[in-house]
Amino acid sequence: MVGDIPFDPKLDDTTFIPCDEQRAMPYNKNGGSLCIDGGKDFVNEYFAKGFKPGKVKGQTGWITVRFMVSCKGESGRFRMESMNRNYQPMQFDSSITRQLMTLCKSLKGWEVFQVGKESRMVPLFIDNPDTTSVIKAYDYYQRLTFKMKDGAIELILP
């Protein structure tokens, strides 16, 4: 699937163990976006406190960090993609990208995605609706996109 993040021994922490990555839900699972305790306001505050702007002129564009959240609510398999305002790939200054990656990896409170009686959504791969009467947690993907202007975070999406 587009957006899947397979394990890469050169990049990934071996202590992060997904439960069933073949069935990991894509980012847009349940039509949803940010699944963290405290929501977007918590995330905004977290990065406002933790990120030290570099004020590096020309470091303008978007940096997206994609990752997986396991069925236990742990995060791993972080990947970063960045582009300039013309949507061309762009390498940002390492003082910026290192900070963002570290902060993303340290961000806690990811929700556990459960499917069961109370769920409004049944994943496509569950053929028999009866199985949804048993609550089960799944791995899923998340992303954070940082709109950057001269080395500072202008805003965080989604």
Binding site: M1, V2, G3, P26, Y27, N28, W62, T64, R66, E81, M83, Y87, Q88, P89, Y141, R143, T145
Partner: peptide, 9 residues
């Protein structure tokens, strides 16, 4: 799917 999943390039 690239848009929804954050692969904007």
């Amino acid at each position: 799917p690239y848009l929804k999943r954050g692969e904007f390039v």
